[in-house]
Design a protein around this nucleic acid. Structure first.
Lengths: 343, 343
DNA sequence: TTGTATGCGTTATCAT
DNA sequence: ATGATAACGCATACAA
């Protein structure tokens, strides 16, 4: 025996009114007599009337819900993003439906279809690290679905993007290592076709160039599948560390890469920073105390989530694209070892 | 210009059929001629027809979505739980709507109302650490909403619960410290009225009792507000460590407590385990390499999420409570320092 | 000021 | 084998 919510019809019957009178009373229409209005409102309140959102959705052709597609919920960056998205959505009266791509293109496509067929009003997506072709997203976008892309962004004409200041963060991080006296700085990044990768790598290279005479050649390794498997990252480290001229420091360009490089160093008894300098993108709680010397680039996950959700809802409610800008850039936070304790 | 999905009506018009014929063809009714059926199916496929889930929801009075209420999405335990919930829900054709209580009773109540009014078919909840009264949940439950409680569970007659083996994990963890030779083991736990707290503390005390002659008196500190603020945990540590007879080891009974005790030790240069033994509940990635001696109790977040979702969906689809059992207990995993590298 | 009728997309129950 | 109609809950254009 499932709970049956009270409807407008029930109220109408109880008060011997028509449904339209009840409906109008509840929406505080001025064309209803004060007494009737009060009677209805009182009865509704007493019986805890709540409009059925599904009926409203059917009528209005909108569900007041937004979909999120990320590769993995159980990832500190994304869970913090979702936190931001949820808080903004909640403020605006939307709810949030989650789907995971698990770093897999097929699953990403079906997640999008799933959300679209669930009639969300709009979608926030950070593409998987295996997504090099954006046709499935463009198709949906072209059919009119409001979409905002964040972090691992999609790149085609017109779509709105919310990103971190990847270039600057990587540049500053590299300079930080240089200032600490490291001479041969390597870089480990994600899939080479992701914009976050190319931007971060560019920041890294530009920093090296600027200080070129001081430095040995650069060394970049790419990890292709989101670094879901630790081994791929360990292999990259093996390769880097077994060279004749091995690096004395590393810039790690994703949460998972940072974590697993630390794990690698631990297992192979490579001291940080005595034997190897390290600065990495990471949103994991605890990285701040991991070693006395680790510096971290915190990604503005929460803020990005809020901004992306705000933008998406604006698009939904204006019923067409916002034209003011296309890409919103949010700065990262460089936590140097000294300031880590403030966290 | 929003994308308008094709409807049964459109198909009917295009093929000069009635909506009922189209509907029946699509549901593969035997009372439709094979030719007509094929024509409809082909047309539907070509035009990418998808039934409108909102219309179905209105008709069937079910939305094929389940709500989740947790204190905080950006928490490794809960994001892993959500991962499990999402994967199970996805398999069963449900989607997942998320709401956060932020460790606040008011927000928990409104989150529940929000979900109920959004017509989810059922709710998974882990109550906030400020929730000592379960009336708001019982009310919803008594009105017929299927609810499964997990982790921080609700306790009233009849409600299904999915929990960790809190007692055993705390017991084993304490014994682990005893076996390592620690003599005065303190315990820091969450709100004293939460079942996870009482169970864990009981495990801790029973372990101490068993080895009593060897050990000094026990020492328990409770952290009341989910440990959202690090200071509360730092204060508890100050108090513990400034006693005449300070502990030589600590059992930390939540993710956040474990993290912040580590942070406290780092800041106060307390070596683990030389100056202080430590074993703690934690699902944070990286804790495994934090110090060479840290042992961890991993909570089965993903599995709990899957089990809880499975149970909830079973309740929803059977349209009444499952009567076989009430509480499902899932074991934790004790990761001792040696085995941590296997993680 | 209030009531009646219609439509949102779908399926079930009647007809035919 | 197919079509017409009602119903799910709500809002609104149209009548009265």
């Amino acid at each position: 025996m499932r709970y049956e919510a009270i409807t407008i019809k029930d109220i109408a019957k109880a008060l011997s009114l028509s449904t339209s009178t009840v409906s109008r009373s509840l929406s505080d229409s001025h064309e209803i007599s004060p007494e009737t209005k009060q009677r209805v409102i009182n009865y509704a309140k007493e019986n805890n009337y709540k409009p059925n959102p599904i009926a409203l959705s059917l009528k209005d052709k909108r569900s007041r819900s937004i979909g999120i597609v990320v590769s993995e919920v159980a990832n500190s960056f994304f869970s913090q993003s979702i936190n931001g998205i949820e808080s903004m959505a909640n403020e605006k009266g939307y709810n949030v439906i989650i789907a995971q791509s698990k770093e897999d293109l097929e699953r990403e496509i079906s997640a999008l279809e799933f959300l679209a067929s669930r009639s969300v009003d709009g979608i926030l997506i950070s593409v998987s690290s295996r997504t090099s072709n954006f046709d499935h997203i463009k198709k949906l976008y072209d059919r009119g679905m409001p979409i905002v892309s964040f972090d691992c962004v999609v790149d085609f004409e017109g779509i709105h993007k919310v990103i971190q200041d990847n270039y600057k963060a990587a540049y500053d991080g590299t300079v930080h290592l240089i200032n600490k006296g490291f001479k041969k700085i390597a870089c480990i990044a994600s899939s080479s076709f992701l914009s976050i990768t190319t931007e971060r790598v560019k920041g890294y290279i530009d920093a090296l160039k600027k200080y070129e005479p001081l430095l040995k050649i650069s060394d970049i390794a790419y990890i292709d599948h989101g670094g879901l498997k630790a081994e791929e990252i360990f292999d990259a480290m093996d390769k880097l560390m077994n060279q004749k001229e091995k690096p004395d420091a590393i810039l790690t360009c994703s949460d998972r890469i940072t974590t697993n490089v630390m794990r690698y160093c631990k297992q192979n008894k490579i001291g940080i920073p005595n034997q190897l300098g390290l600065i990495g993108f990471s949103n994991l709680d605890l990285t701040d105390i991991l070693t006395p010397s680790l510096s971290i680039i915190r990604q503005p996950a929460y803020e990005m989530g809020r901004k992306a959700a705000e933008l998406l809802i604006k698009m939904i409610e204006s019923k067409r694209a916002i034209t003011e800008f296309e890409t919103m850039v949010i700065p990262c936070l460089l936590l140097e070892r000294e300031s880590c304790t403030k966290y």
